[in-house]
């Protein structure tokens, strides 16, 4: 009897320990799997975001092309016929000359606008001459009598990861737009700075500033800052808002620029 008790107890104990070890092992495994799943989901979300951004650029390009090739062409043809019409009209009814001239200048303005818009939609300079030239052009275009935009770029940029230049360009575009639209700034500096393994882009204005917390709470706020965040999300970048009401804003964008292999792959949706 005593032997049975001893054996039974031993068996029970072994079973108990087995169960404990099993529970601990299985639970840890499950947790690890959950982590992997979460990582995978995060990667998938990033891929989706990247694909969305890419589709956006694609669509812009298409619109720019259509605008340039179709509307632009039609407008040029219209201008030709207007010139013809003008000559006829000037012959028969000299009093309409003013009207024709006015129509012609309206048409010219429209043609110029279409060209400008289609060029703004795709950053041609960026593709042809790189980020620094594109930012230079951006600064130049944005400067006028009231605002002065200046690019300060200390050193020569290393080769950038694909998509990185476009991301930085779009972000700079939005930040400058904001500074012009909301800040009443007179002086805006775009500062491009190389770091080991990364790039720091800062946009500094001397405007009236804003309260970031309040803007973030506002449900009806614009898309600009949110877009910046999602763009950075895709490439693991960081944005730091050094802003405050009553003084100029300093917004810093930090991105990694590792070897080009680290490119975010766009998974099929």
């Amino acid at each position: 009897m005593k032997l049975y008790i001893a054996v039974g107890t031993a068996v029970l104990l072994v079973m108990a320990i087995f169960i404990i070890v099993f529970v601990a092992y299985y639970q840890q495994k499950q947790i690890r799997q959950q982590l992997i799943l979460k990582e995978w989901q995060e990667k998938y979300r990033k891929g989706l975001l990247a694909a969305t951004l890419q589709a956006q650029e694609h669509e812009r390009r298409r619109i720019a092309q259509d605008l340039h090739d179709e509307i632009g062409t039609m407008l040029s043809v219209t201008k030709l016929s207007l010139n013809q019409l003008g000559r006829t009209v000037e012959h028969n009814d000299p009093s309409s000359t003013v009207l024709v001239q006015k129509t012609r200048s309206l048409l010219d303005e429209t043609i110029a606008n279409v060209r400008r818009i289609s060029r703004d939609l795709v950053p041609t300079t960026l593709e042809r001459f790189g980020l620094v030239s594109a930012l230079e052009e951006l600064a130049e275009k944005a400067s006028n009598g009231e605002v002065h935009v200046e690019l300060s770029c200390s050193d020569k940029l290393p080769p950038l990861m694909p998509q990185l230049d476009l991301t930085l360009f779009r972000i700079a575009q939005e930040l400058i737009n904001n500074a012009i639209k909301h800040a009443n700034a007179q002086h805006i500096i775009i500062d491009l700075h190389c770091q080991p393994n990364g790039i720091l882009l800062s946009v500094i204005d001397d405007g009236q500033g804003f309260d970031l917390d309040e803007i973030m709470k506002d449900r009806k706020r614009g898309l600009g800052l949110r877009n910046i965040e999602s763009r950075l999300n895709v490439i693991d970048g960081h944005v730091t808002f050094d802003v405050e009401e009553g003084r100029g804003s300093r917004i810093h964008i930090q991105v990694k620029n590792l070897k080009p292999e680290v490119e975010v792959e766009v998974e099929p949706v």
Binding site: M1, T9, L13, A16, I17, I20
Partner: peptide, 21 residues
């Protein structure tokens, strides 16, 4: 829980067969 299960498993038979033990 692990302690409880080991404690219980180790002493269960001692008490179930209390007359013998």
């Amino acid at each position: 829980s692990a302690g409880a299960i080991v404690h219980a498993a180790g002493t269960l038979f001692v008490f179930l067969f209390v007359k013998v033990t």
